[in-house]
């Protein structure tokens, strides 16, 4: 793998780390299988790109993209808790609605940000000798670390603990006076706000927004959360959020490796296939270890008798 591919994978891994934190909130904390992210990711990109092209300050554009993502999450949660639509279906409905909404926002299937001043042009690190390919990863790392600490602090608060109880044991949570519906609304909007942030930053790093950008976002998000749990198991929130970020980076490196190793013969168009295979491996690997042990034990026992 070339240095460019390596740093590119690190950068993507850090960028998608926000998505991993978001999916961690919905999937792990609230136990809410949320496909909205397939729509809120391009939503963030569409809002940020459209506003920046129109001359809005990139910080403001990014902030508005985050709010738009939060509203998308709120919509899914509302369909689920208020209208009692099955959570998975509610998220699919929001996701397909967002496809049209994203096209409306952009007014066309894609928006290019060529020559526009982005958030990454406006923030200059006080490190003059820094190689240019490291600048974006370091900025992302700082922002991601801040968001991680923020998520940790929130989940350790009274409200955050109530949100964790909501996902684990809603009956008990209600008996302790927790308005579980409100916490699902809050958690889902936080999750999708983080996803839209990834979209907004994606548009500014790679210079475009596209309506079809969201395909497979949820799979990538879940893969990183599950991979993180395998790589760095643990029960505390701080460890879990660190693990999903680590999962995100390792996941992108694995994809880069798969696409760059010649003898495998994978090309860019095989990305989603490689993704699916990687997810299957991460899901099965922790179980197969014990399956292998059982197999060995059985064989040993058979050998003895």
């Amino acid at each position: 793998m070339s240095a460019v591919a390596f740093w590119g994978a690190i950068e993507t891994g850090l960028l998608y780390g926000f998505l991993s934190l978001g999916v961690y909130l919905s999937f792990r904390i609230l136990k809410f299988p949320d496909l909205t992210v397939d729509g809120s990711f391009p939503l963030g990109a569409a809002v940020a790109a459209t506003l920046i092209v129109q001359g809005t300050n990139p910080f403001l554009a990014t902030g508005l993209a985050v709010i738009a993502g939060g509203l998308a999450g709120l919509c899914t949660a509302w369909l689920s808790v208020q209208l009692k639509i099955l959570n998975l279906l509610a998220s699919i409905l929001t996701m397909i609605a967002l496809y049209s909404i994203n096209l409306r926002i952009m007014g066309k299937p894609n928006v290019a940000l060529l020559g526009q001043s982005t958030l990454f042009d406006q923030v200059v690190l006080p490190l003059p000798h820094l190689p240019p390919q490291l600048e974006t990863p370091i900025l992302l790392l700082i922002a991601l670390a801040l968001v991680k600490v923020g998520v940790d602090a929130f989940l350790s608060s009274e409200l955050g603990l109530a949100m964790r109880a909501t996902g684990m044991n809603p009956t008990m949570a209600q008996a302790q006076g927790i308005a579980t519906n409100q916490l699902i609304l809050l958690g889902m909007s936080m999750s999708n706000a983080l996803t839209a942030l990834v979209g907004a930053l994606f548009a500014q790093i790679y210079g475009f927004a596209d309506a079809a950008l969201g395909i497979g976002t949820v799979v990538a998000g879940l893969a990183t959360v599950i991979l993180g749990g395998v790589l760095l198991p643990g029960l505390t929130v701080q460890r879990a959020t660190l693990s999903v970020i680590l999962g995100s980076i390792v996941y992108r490196l694995a994809i880069a490796l798969a696409l760059n190793v010649d003898f495998l013969g994978f090309q860019a168009q095989d990305l989603n296939l490689v993704t699916a295979i990687l997810v299957v491996i991460t899901l099965v690997a922790p179980n197969s270890r014990s399956a292998l042990q059982t197999f060995r034990k059985r064989r040993k026992a058979a050998y003895r008798s």
């Binding site: 608060s157 409200l159 603990l161 964790r164 302790q176």
Partner: peptide, 20 residues
């Protein structure tokens, strides 16, 4: 202790204070 903290806040408005 987290379970006890949840019960300790029963019936009160929960905010951003540390749960424990």
């Amino acid at each position: 202790e987290e379970n006890l903290a949840l019960a300790h806040s029963r019936g009160r408005q929960r905010g951003l204070n540390l749960a424990l």
